[in-house]
Design a binder for these strands. Structure first.
Lengths: 339, 339
DNA sequence: AGCGCTTCTGCAAGCGCTTTCATAGTTATA
DNA sequence: TATAACTATGAAAGCGCTTGCAGAAGCGCT
């Protein structure tokens, strides 16, 4: 075997097999008939030379990258693995690779990060909080196929968006507290200011209260930011301020952990003294004692659906602009129901 | 603005700025002096045409991809986010993008998956369970820079490996059970058969027992596979078989969740009746009641160190073959210590 | 003015592949 | 048997960028 320094190219294979490079290319792509005999020869040559085509060259020639870009705010939490695994599976199914990048702690960017500059990925998946409205507008105007996750496009731009049903589920879980457990003073822990999921959940909360003629009390609305420490601090503050409450909608499960801690430190019993509910149905919801009543979010489906939409976009097929995935109530014990 | 269908190329920029494409390239790369005046003209042109260079063309010309490949068995669990976030941060620092692929449920592969075929990434990070020993040998012989995570290379191949200290930490936590809590019949839940972390932990367990003259009882060693359901089933089986024990090393925190569930169902008190300890210090360790005594694993550091090693390899700098990251005992309440 | 330097810029040759077009070889049809 | 109609293959022109080489200025010297 001729072990040259640099890896084999299509030329080497062609020479070894005694055919032209066009033929090798055709064996590689199988888009045009090639005789059995030649295929065998070429494949043998490829094996002998340990040939693998170089992606860059194909990309340049075809002006396609077979790569999807995933842009995230940051890589954290229970959320992330199922989302990514959903995305990866669909991308792989379609023969696409996945390039990942984060906006990091700098917050939403106006510019796409380097890896995703135009034509370095065939399409983009943009997760909430990673690209500003201006950035979305800009990228869209460049004609890059993209879909937004957990974030709606600005100005009604026709950019597909995949997210989950927040409002009705929140309303349902809060009404469960009101109707089944006779709670009247229910704390609402907010998401971060610009978080759309959080805003919708707050609307659901308000609807539930209003529908049952319970006045909305600003003192019961405190920051949670989907963070256990912030949530814990908020609850401790309410307790210290002597504000009474008999229920808590934590914003999400992660925040519920903080609520549990604050309540435990104050020697308050869940659910006897206070009902607590979360949102997301993360794997820790089952682990908490008492088990957390929450809303199940099909986060892997978000990844799957978003990637499907993106594939359609790339293939110029029509696709829905808004995909709202259903969420479902998961009653466990923290609301007061028997386990 | 001339809005042609296809995006601007370096030629368009050169024409617009009245210079040659070489000059544009040099402005792009800043590797050769270019006069201020020309730089300004070119940058203006790039802005006007919304030019962004095409990665494929650069890659082809330079025969570098500026991309790192990350190969995983599957994307699951608490493990994954910090690992990836560590990797991503170092890669980004060095100007590298991250391409992700999973071996999926098919288990370790002999072949690299498509995206990573030679020269489609400048280097590879291979996580335990994603590439077989043959695959590692093969890829290494191709001269692809690579580092292994949580997996040692076969045949003492000089492939850098980054993993964590398992044995001493396991021995320490088991000895803690023996010495501080007078446990004598300690269950060991294993990892999956070929998991190296699991094997080292088992050695640490055996050492601890032997050192304290406690006979090793095969009946106390059962499968845990770092999975809460398998762990729960194993504990339930032991209980059903009437095998007595006063302590459990669960293998990892995830398995500890299953142990908690089994014990709770059997109305056994942790830590009064049985001490339970885990490994990893996942975020749920603090959430369990009682809080889980475990071993802290710096998983983000594994990602960071591995990526650093890979960068050194790519730059032909010398690098360590084995990096063993330290783990530390985290005493909480599940062993019997006061919280 | 002429010389050698140094700086900056342009020319042109690739990088490794795909793909159009033309051609040689085969088979079917009249 | 001549002709049309395919079929499998090859030649060659790109895809958009980098970079070695050479040439053109500009500079300080002699």
């Amino acid at each position: 075997m001729i072990n040259r320094n640099s890896p084999a190219t299509i030329d080497d294979v062609a020479r070894h097999a005694g055919v032209s490079i066009s033929t090798v290319s055709r064996v590689l792509n199988r888009n045009v008939p090639v005789s059995e005999e030649v295929v065998a020869k070429v494949e043998e040559a490829m094996r002998a030379l340990r040939y693998t085509p170089r992606a860059a060259a194909r990309n340049l020639a075809t002006s396609r990258t077979n790569t999807l870009g995933l842009l995230l705010a940051e890589i954290v939490g229970d959320f992330f693995s199922p989302l990514l695994s959903g995305i990866e599976s669909v991308a792989a199914q379609h023969g696409y690779d996945l390039l990942i990048s984060t906006a990091g702690r700098r917050g939403p960017q106006n510019q796409l990060p380097g890896p995703f500059h135009k034509h370095n990925a065939d399409g983009l998946l943009i997760f909430a909080g990673s690209l500003s409205d201006d950035g979305v507008r800009d990228t869209h105007s460049l004609g890059v196929p993209m879909v937004l996750l957990h974030q709606t496009p600005p100005d009604g731009l026709p950019v597909p968006c995949v997210t989950i049903e927040n409002k009705a589920a929140t309303r349902a879980i809060v009404e469960h507290l009101i109707v089944s457990h006779k709670r009247r003073r229910i704390v609402f822990l907010t998401g971060e200011p610009n978080n759309e999921d959080g805003s919708w959940r707050e609307m659901g909360y308000r609807e539930a209260l209003t529908h049952h003629n319970i006045p909305i009390e600003p003192a019961l609305i405190a920051p949670g930011h989907f963070d256990r420490h912030i949530a814990q601090t908020s609850i401790e503050q309410l307790l210290r301020d002597g504000i009474e409450f008999d229920g808590v909608f934590a914003g999400d499960d992660e925040a519920a952990v903080g609520v549990y801690a604050a309540l435990r430190n104050a020697h308050l019993k869940i659910p006897d003294d206070v009902s607590v509910v979360g949102f997301d149905d993360q794997s820790l919801a089952r682990v908490l004692q008492p088990a957390l009543t929450t809303v199940h979010v099909p986060i892997d489906q978000v990844g799957i659906e978003a990637t499907r939409r993106l594939m359609q976009l790339i293939q110029n097929e029509p696709t829905e602009v808004l995909t709202l995935l259903p969420t479902t109530l998961v009653i466990r014990a923290s609301c007061g129901c028997p386990e």
